[in-house]
């Protein structure tokens, strides 16, 4: 067991875990943020996606000793402070989820995409989102929600509709 300190959803935390423990299990079992899901354990399905210093990261294959001290981790619980993040708002408007299990991961991947590329085209969306599996097949609804979040962000910041 070793001690690690990290910043999760803006909060400084210290954990005592085996150094090969994937972030996923530190987040879920040790810190109790259960919104991040276990799907495959091998970085194949994206259910465990979090933001590590703003980058979409598969937490099930990222062991805690690979993470630099005081790295910033954001989970679905910390994506927005009070109001829903534009991506979550779009998900609500489209009623995207079915079973819902993969949706935290989908939202984390999509929000990282929009941060990097505020106006993605269909190919950009496909290539970012193909990392995340949804067995309910909500892909059409997810795509629609990402476009709508991108458009909303553009119009609310006064950007052109492009």
């Amino acid at each position: 067991m070793s001690e690690f300190s990290l910043i999760i959803n803006g909060e400084q935390r210290t954990v005592n875990v085996d150094s090969d423990t994937p972030l996923l299990w530190v987040i879920r079992d040790t810190l109790g943020y259960t919104g991040t899901k276990f799907g495959c354990g091998r970085g194949l399905c994206g259910a465990c996606t979090i933001h590590l210093d703003g980058e979409a990261t598969r937490s099930c294959v990222t062991s805690i000793d690979m993470v630099e001290d005081n790295s910033e981790i954001t989970t679905i619980e910390g994506l927005s402070e009070d109001n829903p993040h534009p991506i979550q708002q779009a998900w609500l408007e489209e009623d995207v989820p079915q079973c819902g299990y993969c949706q935290s991961g989908q939202i984390m991947t999509a929000s990282a995409l929009l941060k990097r590329n505020p106006n993605p085209d269909e190919t950009d969306i496909d290539s970012a989102m193909k990392m995340n599996i949804c067995r309910c097949g909500t892909y059409p609804q997810i795509k629609k929600a990402i476009f709508s979040a991108a458009n909303n962000a553009q119009s609310s910041t006064g950007g052109d509709d492009g």
């Binding site: 919104g35 276990f38 619980e77 979550q88 609500l92 009623d95 819902g100 949706q103 939202i107």
Partner: peptide, 16 residues
């Protein structure tokens, strides 16, 4: 749907 909000903010409780 009545179950969308918890499924987009991470609070929906699955058995896991």
């Amino acid at each position: 749907r009545t179950d969308t909000l918890p499924k987009v903010n991470g609070t929906a409780q699955f058995a896991l």
